[in-house]
Amino acid sequence: MSDNDLTRYSGLVALVGRPNVGKSTLLNALIDEKLSIVTPKPQTTRHRIVGVMGNGNTQIGLIDAPGVHLGTKTALNRVMNENAATSVTGVDLAVLVVDRGRWTDDDAAALRNAKASGVPVGLVINKADLEQDKNRLLPAIEQQSQRDDFAFVVPVSAHRSDNLEALTSELNSRMPQSEFLFDDDALTDRPMRFLVAEIVREKLIIFLQQELPYQIAVEVEEFDSSDPTKTYIQALIWVARDNQKSIVIGRRGSMLEQVGRSARLALADWLETRVDLRLFVRVDPGWPDDEARSRTRA
């Protein structure tokens, strides 16, 4: 029997949860590709991004969106919450990702958002590997499982890719019969420039150990891959104040040089070419507090 004769199943699955619970790490682990950026800081994810997971006759679009958080101090915060809320629109399944040992008001808000979609909600209990005492792990899983009538409950370690087979089986079994929603070789719904900008932003968050990363956005102005041996990239780093520009550039350009070197290596490994990366820093006063500008950069 040829592949064309197989019954196909395809659908959308939203990964929801509070910030920094491991949704992006889980997405990357499930598709076995670095697609969503990951840092130790909460609210790293700003955008709704779809990663495509294929498994024989089943294809799943995994939606990673900003974590639900109750703070709405800036327009950027509000836009991120809107992105989180709309991530469950039109999906076939929602998966609430939680920490094995914590439950907060933000977790409860994420659960309410998932249930509002009207589709089945599964529970993934992440970071199971961090509990050294396994006698304490099972009661923690049981406690989280009783928070709602979940379609399924699967403990995993996204960081170590533990127990992902069980989760994949649960996801596959709940996909509707359908032709594939994405091309067979698709990895994501996002364009290359977006992914490049996210890698640069990831390095900025990692190197700038302050609140400043939340005032930063990255825009790729030029992306030229016409030379198969080298890719030219020019990107703008937007900040909200002049003193932030000085911090990003660093003493004699040292910070920007570190960020550029790390981003260049990551991009070269990902694109499998040499990368000529040029970074420029510009000030756009107060952009995180402006609704329109936050929507284009969130």
Rank of each mutant, 00 (worst) to 15 (best):
V50P: 00
V13P: 09
L62C: 06
Q234L: 13
N81T: 03
R48N: 04
S36Y: 01
T72W: 03
M1G: 15
Q59T: 10
Q144G: 00
L236Y: 14
T231P: 12
F152P: 08
P228W: 08
M80A: 08
A108Y: 01
D133I: 14
E202D: 00
W103F: 14
D3E: 15
V88D: 08
A108S: 09
R251N: 14
E33V: 06
D107F: 05
N243L: 00
N135V: 02
I37A: 01
D242T: 03
R112F: 02
V218M: 02
V239S: 05
Q209T: 14
V153E: 00
L15P: 02
N28M: 04
P120N: 08
L76D: 04
V119P: 02
T25F: 00
D183N: 11
A151L: 11
N83T: 13
I37Y: 07
W287T: 05
E272D: 15
V50N: 00
D148P: 01
V95N: 03
I60F: 00
R201H: 07
P40N: 12
A110D: 05
V38F: 09
G61S: 08
P213L: 06
E219L: 14
L195V: 10
S24T: 03
Q177G: 08
D99E: 15
I199K: 12
G260Y: 10
R174F: 09
D106W: 12
T231D: 08
R264M: 02
P288I: 07
D105S: 15
V97Q: 07
D183Q: 13
V16A: 10
D3A: 15
A75P: 11
D290V: 05
G101L: 09
V13C: 02
P285D: 04
V124A: 00
G61K: 08
A85P: 03
F180S: 05
M1N: 10
S246K: 15
L279G: 07
D162G: 06
S145K: 04
S87M: 02
G286Y: 05
P285H: 02
V248E: 11
V275I: 12
N28V: 10
M1W: 09
L195R: 13
L130Y: 09
L130P: 03
N163V: 04
T273H: 09
R18M: 01
Q146S: 15
S262L: 15
W103A: 03
A166L: 14
M255T: 15
V196G: 05
I141E: 12
V13D: 04
I60H: 09
